[in-house]
Nucleic acid binder design. Sequence first.
DNA 1: CTCAATTCTAAGGAAATTCTAAGGAATGGG
DNA 2: CCCATTCCTTAGAATTTCCTTAGAATTGAG
Lengths: 217, 217
Amino acid sequence: MDSVVRGLEAQGMQVDWAKNGQEGFERAVAEHYDLVISDVMMPRMTGVEMVTRLRKQQYAGPILLLTGMGEVDQKIAGLEAGADDYLTKPFDMGELVARVHALVRRSQGVHSRHAVLRIGDLEVDPQARTVRRNEQPIQLTQKEFELLLYLVRHVGRVISKKEIAEQVWDIHFDSSTNVIEVYMSYLRNKVDKPFSHPLIHTSFGVGYVLRPPDEAV
Amino acid sequence: MDSVVRGLEAQGMQVDWAKNGQEGFERAVAEHYDLVISDVMMPRMTGVEMVTRLRKQQYAGPILLLTGMGEVDQKIAGLEAGADDYLTKPFDMGELVARVHALVRRSQGVHSRHAVLRIGDLEVDPQARTVRRNEQPIQLTQKEFELLLYLVRHVGRVISKKEIAEQVWDIHFDSSTNVIEVYMSYLRNKVDKPFSHPLIHTSFGVGYVLRPPDEAV
DNA sequence: CTCAATTCTAAGGAAATTCTAAGGAATGGG
DNA sequence: CCCATTCCTTAGAATTTCCTTAGAATTGAG
């Protein structure tokens, strides 16, 4: 499972992981994901049950099931419950990536193949892990890039420090550290300071938000 | 119970709490809530009786029951009386949040994912904690935002200062402070002053009210 | 119209939060 | 092993928010 996560992340995807069916279900309902990948055999809730419940809850996004060699009826039951596709273990990473791309693309009705994210004059390429602003390349460290990517993927929404801690640092928020502030400062030095309009804004007492330049404050 | 309140508040929800069944019933009838959560075992009125009476009073919103491990018949009775869902204690917070979201979403017939509240040309997004009027973003502090949100969630109704003190400041009204007047002034400076029609109105001797621009006074 | 009660708002200080410079620990390539 | 880079901690500076105070303005009753 861990290799799946790492494999997809290597493709520039943002992956969130739940350790059992119950938890996965809750997260899928509570947050927004482009795609859900689920094993059919999971503690606390099977993949089939998860699909059933997700569809019942009006979750409309694509769901990909991973099944073991022998679990044929689980596979069928899963598809009938509303899964979009399945993959039989063992599979290779390329196969998985291809299916993920296909499903996401289909559900979004566009080719998100080479999706360069653009916010004003800022360009972020999750695949290549490169950043440019005003045609000028910006060199970021790993963590800086992940932080920026998270902000970019939620433009216009104020992101709490708690959320950043969990999603980018994988830590349950701990007020004794101020890594986030420090990294935000690094990011601003590279992404905002050399340019005329700042994109990163502080929402005092709450968190941070990336805002396109045309929206006046 | 207290942890339930705090957990939901941590999700950005606005939570009101009653210490017994009788009081809960009265509040649910008197005010508007998106969702009622009720324990089945409560002093002065059981959860099942509460559901029965609420439905009799035409209360149409969702009701979520919390039942103890052994209270199976209470559970069934509750659902038959018109509850929408139940959760058996002990449960984890994520599960509760997921159900709350699901119930509220279902009852509102939309994905409340991007539930933007609109009053005339004013837009308030509780998730993103952003405010815009006439397409123009408005920067508010935490307290200012909470105050505005409370007004927005009770459009057209005159809100007493006592109620604001309790709901927004969590203080039992204390006439020695005029924080509310001060913050109302801040809010007007940002939300009303730069625009042609004021939305915030003073009801002398009573409190304040947010009114859409077309409704004459 | 007058007056008391209520509300509005400008100013400022305390408290909380955020920013940033500096340096130590961890990591990885040569 | 050494050096360079990245990551994170620390701590004080800077900023922002929150609330109080006090006087001005407004309101409604008589």
